[in-house]
Write a protein that binds this DNA or RNA. Structure first.
Lengths: 333, 333
DNA sequence: TTGAAAGCGTTACCAT
DNA sequence: ATGGTAACGCTTTCAA
């Protein structure tokens, strides 16, 4: 059987209170007893039970992470960032893939609550904001990453999507393009909306026309991007440059271009968003707007920690700067 | 404050024992009281604390998952498979990225132990098998996925690597190739070793020569694969077909081929292993040996559950069949 | 400086 | 059919 605090106490001829104190470095314990207790703990290979610690009113040192799908490279990278920063600060993280379905979100949130996690990072869409509100009511620290819920007082870490869209536009404009197409994810998602908005504004400022019909909305997977791009690039007055709201869509666009016999970037330039590993694997490699995912994950966890220390802390909204990564999918018009 | 079992008991005018019984559907409770208790639970929005449940001697309903890096698409897909099956059976999963470093493995295992997880899935290399032995001593259910530790009595789920290597070879042989190269991961890893062995045996059986120097060992990332392939394909008597022990290496090989001005598959055929999402993103899309990851994850969790029910259960070794997925990176010699 | 004892929220055994 | 209560392993307060 696993050694308990009682075993240690008995073996060291002290009370469990004393043992507890040396474990946590609290109270005043004579150097002698401390040494002895430590020794016994070592000898019995004692590991305090975090379950008991948690029940006794402290923390569980566990965070929940809600993402649409951990097997999607973008979210997998977020997960790694959250895991690393969590680990550094003593927390482990439970993954929850929601498939963007509110019923799953609800089930997972319930589960995390039952498990008394110390905080939750939300990187998934939540249609029913009441679900998140429930967490706030219970004073559970929450941080959104790469998502926004403007109506809720909640920590948020996002990339500057508007700026990202603008960067994409300016890169393409600088290359001399004038006819553009956009592949947007579901515009209900704020980030997608903002990326498109930033892109369009930049065009506006340079006096370049952009019609509603130049932007097509699609789901977020490769196949959808391909289908949408096929439409855009198949038209008579096809755009010479495409801005895609994520790397998956951009990959679909590359595939579409090839299928139509168009060369990338000679005939059509393509810009993605996210800079996942996928962007380095395509041919041509993808020019894309990079999110500093590691940094964002770190900040999200830090905000949670802040909340943990001082429950009423003001809620922050961190907007981090994206970066244009020029690879081979873009070229002169 | 969160409602506890006491609140429910008081509100429903019953004892906490009764409440506990209706929660768990144990003992005999009159339909009337049951209804009433249920009603109160509903009204007070009561959620039993899994912490307390766990302390009271039951399970934590948590599994640990050790992988080298959750942001690697292959492991991200494994994680999703484990998460799904875990979720189905009522368990949540804690991710642990080890970077293949034993010190991190050790730290994470210690953490999982302190948290009293009910089982651990290991999908990472562990040099010091004593670390795993420790888990077995403590009777913690363990399942290896995609890894082997032949010396230890532990559940194991692996793809038939030997067969996978053979499938790759036969596919290439059928296309008429006779000069082969191999990109192998570190041969300390059994799976890599077996893939190469299967590949070589198949060549042997058809009487095709393969020299030691045709196989090059490298680390497991794109850049390493590229460097190694550059060597192989740059030689005067270059191979016309390359078998790579994972998709990342294969991607590196494709990049190397292009850099050398070789066309894939016209000048050189390339076969990968794993069939991650990356294989669908390259150009040409990658012919690869697919692992049924979802199925493997499911089985690994099931084995854990078996162990949970009957600690002394015999240890299984499941070998699942890989599948050749022909895409565009292979063609006639 | 040390220890006794009261929680923390459950489960499970034993009475009633 | 229901309830009282010990136990799970720890933290914390209060006395000594």
């Amino acid at each position: 059987m696993k050694a308990t605090i009682y075993d240690i106490a008995k073996e060291a001829n002290v009370s469990i209170a004393t043992v507890s104190k040396v474990i946590n470095g609290k109270g005043r314990i004579s150097a002698e007893k401390r040494r002895e207790v430590l020794q016994v703990m070592e000898r019995l290979n004692y590991q305090p039970s975090m379950i008991a610690t948690a029940l006794a009113g402290k923390q569980t040192f566990t965070l929940g992470l809600l993402v649409p799908d951990i097997s999607n490279p973008y979210f997998a990278e977020i997960a790694r960032a959250i895991e690393d920063q969590g680990h550094r600060t003593g927390y482990s993280v439970v993954i929850c893939s929601t498939d963007n379905r509110d019923e799953r979100v609800e089930k997972y949130i319930g589960l995390l609550l039952k498990k008394s996690v110390d905080g939750i990072v939300i990187g998934t869409g939540v249609d029913n904001s009441e679900l998140v509100q429930r967490l706030l009511n219970r004073k559970i620290p929450v941080a959104l990453i790469s998502r926004e819920m403007p109506d809720l007082p909640v920590h948020t870490v996002v990339v500057d999507d508007d700026l990202g869209g603008r960067m994409a536009a300016e890169h393409l404009l600088d290359l001399g393009h004038t006819r553009f197409g956009v592949l947007a994810e579901d515009l209900k998602v704020a980030s997608s909306r903002n990326r498109v908005r930033g892109f369009r504004r930049a065009l506006d400022e340079r006096g370049i026309a952009f019609r509603e019909s130049d932007a097509v909305i699609c789901d977020f997977q490769i196949a959808h991007g391909k289908a949408a791009a096929l439409g855009l690039l198949g038209a008579a007055d096809r755009p010479t440059a495409l801005f895609c709201c994520n790397d998956l869509l951009a990959i679909g666009a590359i595939q579409a271009a090839k299928e139509l016999g168009l060369r990338v970037p000679e005939d059509v330039s393509i810009v993605g968003f996210d800079n996942t590993i996928l962007a380095t694997v395509t041919d041509p490699q993808l020019t894309t707007i990079a999110q500093p995912i590691e940094h964002m994950g770190k900040q999200a966890v830090n905000l949670l920690m802040q909340d943990l220390e001082e429950r009423e802390a003001a809620k922050s909204r961190l907007v981090v700067r994206p970066e244009l990564v020029v690879r081979q999918s873009t070229g002169p018009a």
